[in-house]
Structures are given as C-alpha cells and as structure tokens.
Amino acid sequence: MVEVLAVGLSDIKVARQGQNLRSSGLGSCVGLVLFDSLRHIAGMAHIMLPDNKITRGKAHPPGKFANTAVPELLKQLLAIGAKKSNLYAKMAGGAEMFRTTTGFTANIGMRNIEAVKAELDAHHFELVSADVGGNFGRSIEFVTETGDLRIHTVSQGDKVI
C-alpha cells in the first residue's frame, strides 16, 4: 500500500520508498521534484513565485519561492540519506491561466519556470523531464518507487513523464 503525501501551496515534503508525493491543481505554480532513484528517496516543492526579494517583511515558508525552495529541498533530502551527486529533477506546472494579470504577477508561470531552471543549474541538477506552460491546470503525483511523474489535467488528458 502506497502512502500519498499531499504537498500544499508553498510546502516542501520528502518521501521514501512506499510513499508518493502529490500536488493538486497547479496553475502558474511549479511542482518541482528532486529524486535519488538509487535510494528511492524524493522530495517535492510547490513553488508559487520566482524570488523572495519581492517580499515585504513578513516571514514566508521557503517552499514558496524558487530561489529558497531548491536549497531547502536539497537540505531535507540530504537529511534523510539522499546523495547529491545522484539527485535528478522533474517539474510540471507554470501555466498562464489568465492573460490579464499585470504588475509583478504578469507572465508569472513562465517566470516561475525560468527561476526554477536557473536554480537547478546553479546547483548542477539535471532536469530529466518537464511538462510546463500552456493555459491549463495540472495535478501531479511522483511515484518514488519508479521515478515516474504522473500528470493529470481536466481538458488535456493525462500523461507520465
């Protein structure tokens, strides 16, 4: 029996064999997975925004921003026994649900994708697969056992990357 861990908005969670990681209803948010396939250890971050520099004082969870989520995800994975040299990345999300959003949320899906990619590069993580962009929402589940990232949508069908 596989246990499914829900990764809510701005959350970061890690899983071992027998546990899957799931984020429901990603719009412009990005679901990022880092996994160690040898040890069957994985972590997922539900990232909302590219960069924490836009914050004004209030404390925010590290999973909220791409630039703080990646280091925190790495830290938590290493803590449960993952090896950095064997960590690979998959991601999904970063859609543009509406066209009118202006100001700092303009093109936020695309900016989230770019920010996550930049962070992965900075940490020398290889992005093995991604399903990003478009104008539709996605729910994702990472199968720690196999390394599959299952993607479900309302109108664009389902797939595995």
Partner: peptide, 25 residues
C-alpha cells in the same frame, strides 16, 4: 471591473492565480 475572462479548470489552479500577490501580506 475589467472585462471577464472565462476558464474551465481545477478550482485550485484558477484561484491560486488571484492569491499570488495577496499571499505576500
């Protein structure tokens, strides 16, 4: 009000668009 935009999708994917800026404070 701006003209409306219509979208058929998952509830959370739709609503999270509106809370991006709000979520900072």
């Amino acid at each position: 009000l701006s003209p409306p935009q219509v979208c058929v999708d998952m509830k959370s994917a739709v609503l999270s668009e509106g809370i991006l800026d709000l979520s900072l404070y």
